[in-house]
Structure formats: C-alpha cells, structure tokens
Simulated assay, not measured.
Amino acid sequence: MAVPGDFAHIPIVDIAGLRSGDADARARVAQALGTAAREVGFLYVTGHGLDPALIDGLLRASERFFALPLAEKMKVYIGNSTNHRGYVPEGEEGFYGNPADIKEAYDLSIDLAHDDPDYVAGNPFLGPNQWPPLPGFAEAVSAYYQAIFALGLDLLDGFAIALGEEPAVFRAHVTKPPSQLRLVHYPFNPTAEDRLGIGAHTDYEVFTLLLATKPGLEVMNGAGTWIDAPPVPGAFIVNVGDMLETWTNGEFVATSHRVRKVKEERYSFPLFFNVDYHTHVAPLPRFVKDGQPMRVGLSAGEHLFAQTAQTFNYLRRKLEAGEIKLPEGALGLSSFGQEARQKTA
C-alpha cells in the first residue's frame, strides 16, 4: 500500500501521449500518472487539447448566471429537483459541522430525458438537468461538459494502464454515469476573514478534473501539512477520488483537500468523474495480498448518495424527517485520504 510522502509541490504531467497511437507514449504517460497517484494523489495535466473557447464560454455563462438576482437563481434551487441538479445557495452545504461554506454553485450532470427509466424509477442522481432560462447558458455549459467528460475517459484509460490493467476494466462501467460538473462561485470580499470556502474532504467519485480561476485550493501531504495548489495556466488539476482508492486497495490515495477563503472573486469548475450508479467497486485482484487489509467494497452510486446526503442541508432535512435514509453500511464523512489516516495514526 502506498504511503503519500511529505511532498511540497504538485507534479505536472503532459498527457498528450494518451491520445497517441504510439503504445510507448501511452505507457510513459500512464507511468507518470501512476507515480503521481501513488505519491501525491494530486497532479496537474497539460497537453489535454481542450479548446480554450469552450473554457471561455463556460466562464462567461457562469458569470451571467451568478450575476442574476438571488430570487431568479432560486427558481432552479437544487432542493426542487429529485436528482440533485440546480442552484446551490451560500450556506446550503458544509462539512463536518464547520461553518457554512462561503460560496454558491450550480450543479449538473449527464442530461437525460424525463422518460429515462432510471429517472422514472427515482434514481437520486440520474435524469434531466434543471436549466435556468438564460439564453445560451445550457448550450455553453453542455459543450464544455461533453469535452471535459471525453478528457476524463482518456484519463480513466491512463489510470487503468498505470495499474497494469486493460482500459476495459474501468470503461465497462461507464455507460450512463452520474459524473457531476459544478460551477462554483466564490464572491469578492475585500474584508474576508481567515475562513474556509470549502472544508477539508476527499472527492466521492473516481477522480476529479478541476479548472479554477484563482488560488485558494490546498492539499494535505503525508505529513498532514497543507500545500498550496494554485492554478497553472493551460493545465487542469486532477485528484484521485474514493472509488479509485478503493479499486486499488489504497495504492492510489484520495487526497484530502480544502479551499481557503480568498479576497478575490473566484470561479471553480470541477468535473467529478464517476462510473455507473450501480457499479460495485472493490479492490482489483492484483491488490488483494496475503496479510494486507482489504478495503470494503462499495456501490459507487450509494457511496455518492450517502456522502452527499450528509453534506447538503436539503438532504439532511429529508434524512431527519425520514423521507430518505442512508444506504446500509454507509460510511461517514472523511473516511478516505490522508486526513483519515492522520486521525487513525
């Protein structure tokens, strides 16, 4: 089992070779991805080929949406949906009893029809998006979603190769995944106190692809020290999530991270890349070894639901009212990553 080191910086990996027909180039990139995932759990990726115009369109659309009056944004309040889509006002979510996160967001995922069988059956993460009636918003955001999801598929293949597996070992579980894109806005506050924008946590999915406009992100290293992870021009930040840590039995580490409050206005666009809702995620055979503890298998969707329900106020209210319940065996928050290891050391 890998133990993350006392790293002081986040590595940069050029992933252009993943889209190459050159097997050696793909192998070199995969090796670099694997090293970063084992030793840090976070990395910057360049050479991704994403059209800058799509990024600019996403940013412009986000600026227009968050500039709307609160009453307009609340018309697509996430608590009005049954599949966790829509506007997240400031104070709606928080981690571990910390003060409410100082941010607002808009959440979306794969946009399915209203008659999609999973949506009709009541799946808590699949179905249509709750789009605001803002001209061009859905088009710009959807175009970015499709491009960043395609990049996620390339990275998924790269991680599989890094583990000595065929890409199909993960790809087979990506047919209709609840991979969520968040548009997150941290408002300008010249008198900002030294508070967190998002409390320390790991990400609940396979991995995350993040684009941010300003500093603020911090990553916990193996010694429990917080390391800055500022934006790097032309790069995305990638971090290992709970599912990849489980599949590798801890070989890859879901790194604890947080966002500190900064004075500058800041936008953050994470894609939480996930596998299909009902995927059972358990350590791959190559990581099951005599004398080594084996991670408990998880349902990807149920884990996502349990963690989300413990974070969002509208879902916590439903839990308290008995309208919903956590899946049997649901883990508490902060059950993965370096922070969890620090607590049990």
Rank of each mutant, 00 (worst) to 15 (best):
F137R: 01
V141R: 10
S142E: 11
S142W: 02
S142K: 13
A143Q: 11
A143S: 14
A143I: 09
Y145Q: 03
I148G: 00
F149E: 02
L155Q: 09
L156E: 12
L156R: 11
D157M: 01
L163Q: 14
G164W: 00
G164F: 00
G164R: 05
E165Q: 15
E166D: 15
P167M: 06
A168K: 10
V169W: 09
A172T: 15
H173D: 15
H173M: 06
V174S: 08
K176R: 15
K176A: 12
K176F: 08
P178G: 00
Q180V: 14
L183R: 10
V184K: 11
Y186W: 07
P187H: 00
P187W: 04
F188Y: 15
F188I: 13
F188S: 13
F188Q: 14
F188P: 11
N189H: 12
P190C: 06
P190F: 00
E193F: 10
R195M: 12
L196N: 10
I198A: 14
G199H: 04
H201A: 06
H201P: 13
Y204Q: 14
E205G: 10
V206R: 10
V206F: 15
L209E: 09
L210G: 00
L211S: 14
K214I: 01
P215S: 02
P215Y: 07
L217G: 08
E218W: 05
V219K: 03
N221A: 01
A223C: 05
T225M: 12
W226E: 08
I227G: 05
I227H: 02
I227M: 04
D228N: 09
A229N: 02
P230R: 04
P230F: 04
P231D: 06
V232N: 02
V232F: 11
V232R: 12
P233H: 09
G234N: 04
A235W: 03
